[in-house]
């Protein structure tokens, strides 16, 4: 394995959690809901995934538990914002605070324990192709899932009736309601899809990225995922490009640190956050790019009149 290949493999590892969480949030936001609780759902996915995998010894049960953890938190968010019509920004913040606290409590007895690592699923023959084989066909199931999700969401959102309904609910909930669509039900489903993806992303962190439980191990990745959705202008394919770019930045810091140019490690560690801000500024400043695809009803509360 040469150096380039190793770098590409680590970039994929760093990008996958961002991609998984962001694709879920993209669907949620397309339905007109802004869920700022990604970080909280992700960290719950990480702790539930680790705990279940450690207890059973099976990483796949861990993945399932991670998904359930994310979905459970997103369900609370859905009850509050959809049924009780609360402010989405505040509720999302509450979800993050709750997720960080709850995961710390659940994970307390798992700190420092050796985790169960999710194994690679090498596809026979294909993974032996020189250079691109291990990159494309020697990954674990969550990397494949993340790539399938990009194509899956693109197809569903833009080529199917379900996608049309989701986008209409996100762009004009009053019209969608008048046409007879159940706005609240669509949003419930999209919120919980987002929760499932965030849970997957967290499980990836605690089962594949660093197979152990560390408190607050998401380290702001949930927030970066939220920024990525803005960066992608709500298009799954641009989201994938963005996620891999961000993953590269995340890894670059580590490599530069290893080479040791005498730059303090803290400055390199803050690089992904600085880059996130810069990316947000560039995209948000471009009005044509953002206005075309921004779901028009994002963040607005909808209470059906009877």
């Amino acid at each position: 394995m040469d150096a380039t290949q190793a770098v590409i493999l680590t970039i994929i590892t760093a990008s996958t959690p961002l991609l998984l969480a962001a694709i879920g949030e993209l669907v949620t936001e397309r339905s007109g809901v802004l869920n700022l609780g990604v970080e909280g759902m992700m960290v719950m996915g990480a702790v539930c995934g680790f705990a279940a995998a450690y207890t059973t010894g099976n990483p796949y049960i861990g993945i399932l538990a991670g998904v359930l953890g994310g979905v459970a938190l997103s369900f609370f968010f859905a009850i509050l914002t959809q049924t009780l019509a609360t402010n989405q920004v505040a509720t999302g913040l509450a979800l993050t605070l709750l997720g960080l606290g709850l995961s710390g409590l659940i994970g307390e007895s798992f700190v420092g324990l050796p985790g169960v690592k999710l194994q690679q699923l090498s596809i026979p023959f294909l993974s032996t192709i020189p250079f691109i084989g291990p990159i494309l066909f020697g990954q674990d199931i969550l990397v494949y899932t993340s790539i399938a999700l990009i194509f899956g969401t693109t197809y569903v959102l833009f080529k199917t009736r379900i996608g049309l309904i989701i986008r209409s609910v996100g762009d004009n909930h009053n019209s969608a309601h008048a046409l007879g669509y159940n706005v609240i039900a669509v949003r419930y489903a999209c919120i919980m899809f987002g929760g499932a993806c965030s849970g997957l992303s967290g499980a990836y962190l605690s089962l594949a990225y660093t197979p152990q439980w560390i408190e607050n191990m998401t380290a702001g990745r949930g927030w970066v995922a939220l920024a990525l959705v803005v960066f992608s202008t709500w298009l799954p394919k641009r989201l994938a490009i963005g996620a891999y770019l961000f993953g590269a930045v995340w890894i670059m810091g580590l490599y530069v640190q290893a080479l040791g140019f005498g730059i303090p490690s803290q400055f390199l560690s803050s690089l992904p956050y600085v880059v996130t801000i810069i990316a947000l500024v560039i995209i948000s400043g471009n009005k044509t790019l953002t206005r075309v695809n921004t779901p028009a009803c994002i963040g607005q509360t909808f209470v059906p009149d009877r």
Binding site: A227, Y273, V281, S284
Partner: peptide, 10 residues
């Protein structure tokens, strides 16, 4: 027009 929620948190 950058979202202040994300920038201030970063």
């Amino acid at each position: 027009n950058a979202n202040e929620i994300l920038t201030s948190l970063m």
